[in-house]
């Protein structure tokens, strides 16, 4: 039987070259839908106004197809403020304010060998006290308002707050956004945003190469 070592040696490299090269494989329905002009679009989330799409509200359901089709570009995030101090090392804390569980998994996916965010100096930490950025996912559940406020309070400055996923940004179709409790520096749209998009947002927020 092969050992872990030989198993690893004989497996091929999985890790992406993103963000230095283009993303290998993007799930289409997380990227920005653009108008194709074919018929009328239906949008259950009311994200579509005429031909423009408010990505903060888009829930990636695909119901607007074929009037709108996704553009396949990983960069959907909007960075309001950047912090260069995090360029060498960037510690993030995942905060679940009331998600369906998929945003959590997409953020956590950044540690798997395909994305391996540690190669960029990004790592998870176990408490907001040690974090540079708070990654908030999910709608604002009633019981999580107070913990969220405390988490932001516990963040040392300089700091960044990310709203990841339609729920956190706008409340999506199921609840309230987190904007009532915290001011967000970076929004990462998608339902859920795919790991490439999250990684791109993390990189841009620290003024890193992209």
């Amino acid at each position: 039987m092969k050992t872990w070592l030989t198993y690893g040696l004989f497996s091929k490299r999985l890790t992406t070259k993103f963000p230095f090269k283009a993303a290998e494989e993007l799930p289409v329905w997380t990227t920005m839908p653009v108008s194709t002009g074919a018929g009328e679009a239906i949008c259950p989330a009311n994200a579509i106004q005429d031909t423009s799409v408010d990505m903060g509200m888009c829930i990636s359901c695909g119901y607007c197809s074929p009037a709108f089709e996704p553009d396949g570009n990983a960069r959907t995030s909007i960075v309001h403020s950047t912090e260069k101090a995090f360029r060498k090392s960037f510690h993030i804390y995942l905060f679940d304010a009331g998600s369906c569980g998929s945003c959590n998994l997409e953020v956590k996916a950044l540690v798997n060998p395909y994305y391996d965010m540690s190669r960029l100096g990004i790592s998870f930490c176990a408490t907001p006290k040690h974090a540079d950025a708070l990654i908030v996912v999910g709608v604002l559940a009633e019981g999580m308002g107070e913990p969220l406020r405390r988490a932001v309070e516990a963040l040392p400055s300089p700091r960044l707050v990310f709203a990841v996923g339609a729920c956190a940004i706008s409340g999506g179709i199921i609840g309230k956004s987190i904007s009532g409790v915290v001011e967000t520096d970076v929004i990462v749209p998608g339902c859920p945003p795919n790991p490439f998009t999250i990684l791109d947002a993390l990189q841009r927020s620290r003024g890193g190469k992209h």
Binding site: T127, E146, P147, A154, S157
Partner: peptide, 11 residues
Amino acid sequence: SRTVVNWSGGI
């Protein structure tokens, strides 16, 4: 140095 408050799971 960065000063932070205690963290006990958010409560």
